[in-house]
Structure formats: C-alpha cells, structure tokens
Design a protein around this nucleic acid. Structure first.
Length: 577
RNA sequence: GUCCCCGUAGCUCAGUGGACAGAGCAGCGGUUUUCUAAACCGCCGGCCGCAGGUUCGAAUCCUGCCGGGGACGCCA
C-alpha cells in the first residue's frame, strides 16, 4: 500500500500495485466530447473563452433515467460565446459525436433535449466490457491516476498530549483518515502527519497536576483532573520523582514530559484501534530545536514582513488585511504558537510537498488566513496551503448534551465511544456528513439504531454476494470469464453495471472536494441497486448454467466494487453477517 | 462591533449553477415452500429560513434581514 516513490514512467509501465485497465467512463466521455467539438468545427478559431474546451466540458449523471446515462450542458455553455442557439449547437455536437467510431461503439443513443442538453446512453457491449475490466482490476478498481498527482501532506488530529483522545477528537481523526484514503484513491501520494504540542505551559501544568496528586496536594487551579491523572501519579517511577526534585530541575517540566510521553503512547494506541495510521509524528520541540522558526523569520525578514517592537518580533500581517500585526517571538524570548506554526510550515515544504492540508477544528478559523498569508509572505504558494475546518459535534445522550472539559476530567474517551457504538458505525456516521457543518451525535440513538444503520445495509449487500458466490461454488457453478454481449437484453443487469462504473467518478469528485459523504451515498445506492438485482434475477441456477455464469460474473464485479467502496472509508466488508 | 460556518421532510442529514428537490430513521400498509427478510414493494411527508437581485436556468451565486453556532490574546 505504500505510495510509489518512483515518478510514473512515460510508458504505460505502471509498477505493480496501482494500475487501471479502463479509462473511467466519464473521463472517456469528456475526451470524446472534446473530439466532437474539434470535429464539428463549431469552435471559433480566435475565441479565447472556449480555447480549451476539454477543460470546461462538464459531464454529469442526470437524475432522471429518461435523460440518459450521462448528460452534458456543453451546448448551453457555448451558446453565449458562440452567439448561437443552444439547440443548434447541441445538434451539431451530437452529429459530430455520432461520427466518432469510438463513440459509436460506446454509446447507443445520442440525443438532444431542450433547452440544449446532450444526453447519451451507454451501449450493452461497452457495459459488458467494463464489467470484465472491473473484475480484472479487482482491488484496484476505482483507483485513479490523478490528472495532477501531488505529494500531499495531511495533518490532522494533532491533539495535545495532555489527556487521552476523547469523543471531541473523533471527528477530526475519522475525517482526516477518510480524506487521506480518498486522496490516495485518486492517485495522490499522501503523508499523514500528527503534530504534538509537547512543550510549554500545558505540559508543565500536566506535570504539576501529576505531582500534586502524588504528593496529596490540592491540584493546581487550572490543572488537569480526571482518572487518567490519578493513574499517571500512581505509575510514576520513583527514580523520576527523585530526579524531578533535584536542585536545578523543574519538577513540573520533568514530570510533565514523562506524563505526556505516556499519554502520547495511549493516543497512538487509540488511533490504531480506530484504524487511523500516521506516517510522520512531529513535535513542537523538534520544530523549535531544529531551527525552523529561525528560517521562517529569515524568510519574512528578507521579504520585509518582519519588525521588532516593544521587545517582541512581529509579522506585519496587516499588509494582508489582518486587523492587527501578530507576534511571533514574545518579549520574554519564547515563540508564540503562530511562530511555531510558520516554522513548521517551512519544515513541511522543505520535505518537498507541493500541497499542505491542515484539518483544523472550526475554533481555529481565525488563524487560517494568518497562516496562509504568512506562507505567501515567506515565498510559498498560498493556494498550496489548504485548511478545511472540521465543525463541532454536539454529543448528546438521550437528548441531553454531554459537556466536556479535559481539564476538569469530564469527558468520554474515544475508546469508550467505540466500545458503545462500534468502529464501522462511527466511521460511517462521520463519513456520511459534510465536515464543515455542525452535527449532533446522539450516542443512545446511534446504539439503538445500529441495526438500521445504513452501514449494515451496505455490508449486508456484500455479505449476501459472498453467500451467493459460496453457494455457486457448492453447486459447481463458476463465473463466466467474460460477459461479452451478455447484457444486451438485460436492463436490470445493465443498471447494475452502470452503477459499478460510477466508483471512479465518485472518488474523483470526493478527492477534489476533500469530502467523503459522496462515497457513503454511493455505497448506499450501489447496495440498493444490487438488492434490486437480487430480487429480479436469480443468480445461482443449475437449470441454466450459462446465464448463471454470466450473472455470477456481474455479481462478483459488484462484490469487488462494494468492497473497494467500503475500503475507501475504512469499513470492513464482511463475508457473512 | 468585525469576521467565519450553518438554516432543506417529524428527526438526523445529502444535494452548492442545470431538466419534475433526495437518503436513512420515524409513521402507515403489503411481500417469504425459491441464492442471507440486516431484504423488497407501496403510501404519508418540503412556500429548500425570509425578501430582493444576477442568469436561458437558483436550494445552489450576489445583497439585505431573521435565527443558531463559532472566532476575534505577546493563550494553546
């Protein structure tokens, strides 16, 4: 699964794991439409507005079956620049499209519909070939070769090591993992990164809290409480306690560093339990120790965005529309959080990423513009710094909001949530919702509804297919090696085949939007389509082994597609339920 | 006060420039001697917060208002 470090060779020699044998249908149509525009001669030679029609061609799946399998609004878009009636353009395009041999094979219908849509329908021959290709691709079906593959750095969770992960961190962890999976599926090379804020007042406060508990002192006013602090105090090795009380040592810091190391181990274990993996762990201390903040300061200084005042070092953020300038190094010599952020940003870019994605909580939105502006001031491409914000989750139990405070020790840990709700259901819950809208998570409701949860609906479809395939083997039936023309008279089978072919499109759209809910919506629709197929077509049928073999092939392709879709959101695809 | 996000079916949420607005759950009614009924079929349910505007076309873009949440430190 490791991303391929080799640059793609110019020939078709893909190296092993990632290969696609078929061009995604929508991409093929875009290409054909581009050719049709060329072939029709409707494009005015001097018009810059439509100079690159291949870029602007939108191909969509219409909502209504009578509008075909795919539609394009190309004629409507061209009407204005060409100063011609949309229907006229659509007619010309349709004719040019029909004239292309490849389109002739792929499409049965090319229709024009008012006010100027072009609707096309896929041929049974094309669909049968495509299903064969799905089976040939197996686990790699759906994976794309990105148009512009990037080396992407995705930083997420990054919760402070001052307490275990709690349910407030759940959304960021899942969404981050999901976005990474989808970006990988779209052909990008993704580095998953966690940033530990392991220095400063919070860690010291943690150490002080542990020390107080150990010594039976009252905990500091702003200190951390909770069971885990008690546990840390109990587990404190005596020799460490001695070292902490040595003259010249800062006991709060010594104990705090030890405690945060312990907590960090727990965080990593929790994440592993979620199925969330990280490639790189960075800490604030590393960024500061290795001089990255100085490099950031130097970059700002040389571009004239830095100045000293009142004993502090400032970033002239007002040059970018901020309402006031921001401190990078405080008058006491310590760096601000912002200072560390920009040092870290320089460090990340130094590793050769061409895009940095930060998944931050919505409460950080005030600092987004500042970070991106600083990137620009330091000579980086501001557009390469993306910060999708993860909105709040209100956790509710039987209608009452659960209030949480790490310091007060009142929270539900992530591990507790998972033992109540289950990792697949929790993943689905977050995957199915837009990350930038606030949501309610009613734990009781989630438990109670778990049997009706759509995730089980989709998993059930997969298990059902697995059962069918087992049954077929028992009865000595094998999937056909190729579907060939087998779908010609089978509209139900065609419908299922069309559904399978959506996966690459779904991945492409999800990756572009850095969103995941399209994937779960697709998974549900695919499962629904399969269940309908199951109702209408008998698959295992010894009376007609030939038909049975073809249907088994289609169903096997469906199983592959379902499994790949679930894998994209990190959810298991069970063989039996 | 300034800025950001959100407002879609009873509930939880998709859809963010296309052709009659969707799903799950909840509610009502039906389907099994046949490959998994964790399934399938039907019904009920919406001035897409409100008002203007842009567009051939707006839930989607712009402006204003109303309602909810959040952010505005030499905190992290």
């Amino acid at each position: 699964m490791a991303p391929n470090d080799q640059p793609a060779s110019s020939t078709n020699g893909s190296t092993g794991t990632t290969s696609i044998s078929v061009e995604p249908t929508r991409s093929a149509l875009r290409r054909l439409l581009g050719a049709a525009v060329e072939g029709s001669g409707i494009r005015p030679p001097e018009s810059a507005a439509v100079a690159a029609p291949t870029v602007n061609i939108e191909v969509t799946r219409p909502q209504h079956a009578e509008h075909g399998d795919f539609a394009t609004n190309l004629a409507l878009k061209l009407a204005r620049p060409l100063k011609r009636r949309p229907l006229e353009i659509a007619d010309t395009l349709a004719e040019a499209l029909r004239a292309l041999p490849e389109a002739h094979e792929m499409l049965t219908d090319v229709d024009v519909a008012p006010p100027g849509f072009l609707n096309v329908r896929l041929s049974a021959v094309y669909l049968a070939q495509a299903v064969d290709a799905v089976r040939a691709a197996g686990p790699t079906f759906g994976r794309l070769r990105a148009e512009q593959p990037g080396r992407l750095n995705v930083e997420f969770v990054s919760a402070n090591p001052t307490g275990p992960l709690h349910i407030g961190n759940a959304r960021g962890a899942f969404v981050g993992d999901l976005v990474c999976r989808i970006l990988e599926g779209a052909g990008h090379e993704v580095t998953r990164e966690y940033y530990f804020n392991d220095s400063g007042t919070q860690v010291r406060m943690l150490g002080e809290s542990v020390r107080a508990l150990r010594d039976g002192d009252p905990p500091p006013k702003e200190g951390y409480r909770g069971e885990y602090v008690r546990q840390l105090a109990d587990e404190l090795p005596p020799e460490l306690g001695e070292r902490a009380s040595h003259p010249g040592e800062d006991p709060a810091l010594v104990l705090g560093e030890w405690a945060s190391q312990r907590i960090r181990g727990g965080i990593e274990a929790s994440l592993a339990r979620l199925g969330v993996r990280f490639d790189v762990w960075r800490t604030e201390t590393m960024i500061e120790r290795d001089g990255w903040i100085e490099q950031a300061l130097e970059r700002l200084r040389s571009s004239g965005h830095l100045y000293e005042a009142e004993g502090a070092t400032w970033f002239r953020s007002t040059a970018y529309g901020d309402d006031k300038d921001r401190v990078i190094r405080r008058s006491n010599g310590e760096y601000t959080y912002f200072g560390k952020d920009i040092g870290y940003l320089v460090e990340k870019f130094s590793r050769g990423f061409d895009r940095l994605i930060y998944l931050w909580g919505a409460d950080h939105h005030g600092t987004v513009a500042r970070l991106r502006n600083a990137a620009e001031a330091m000579g980086f491409d501001k557009a390469a710094v993306e910060v999708p914000l993860i909105a709040w989750v209100r956790f509710v139990r039987e209608g009452r909001e659960i209030s949480m405070s790490k310091r007060a020790g009142e929270f539900i840990t992530l591990d507790e949530l998972l033992s109540e709700v289950g990792v697949d259901a929790a993943r689905w819950f977050f995957a199915a919702r837009s990350h930038n809208t606030g949501i309610d998570f009613d734990i009781e409701l989630a438990k109670r509804q778990s049997n009706e949860n759509p995730v089980y609906y989709v998993q059930y479809a997969h298990a059902r297919i697995a059962s069918i395939l087992r049954k077929a083997t028992e009865e000595g039936l094998q999937p056909a090696t190729s579907l060939r023309g087998a779908l010609a008279d089978d509209t139900v089978g065609q419908g299922l085949a069309k559904q399978l072919l959506r996966l690459p499109e779904v991945i492409e759209d999800a990756a572009d939007a850095r969103e995941t809910q399209g994937v779960t919506a697709y998974a549900t629709e695919l499962a629904t389509t399969f269940h309908a197929y199951y109702r209408d077509r008998r698959v295992v049928d010894q009376a007609d082994p030939e038909t049975s073999a073809r249907r088994l092939a289609l169903v096997e392709a469906t199983r592959i597609t379902l499994a790949n879709t679930l894998g994209l959101v990190g959810i298991s695809a069970p063989e039996a339920m």
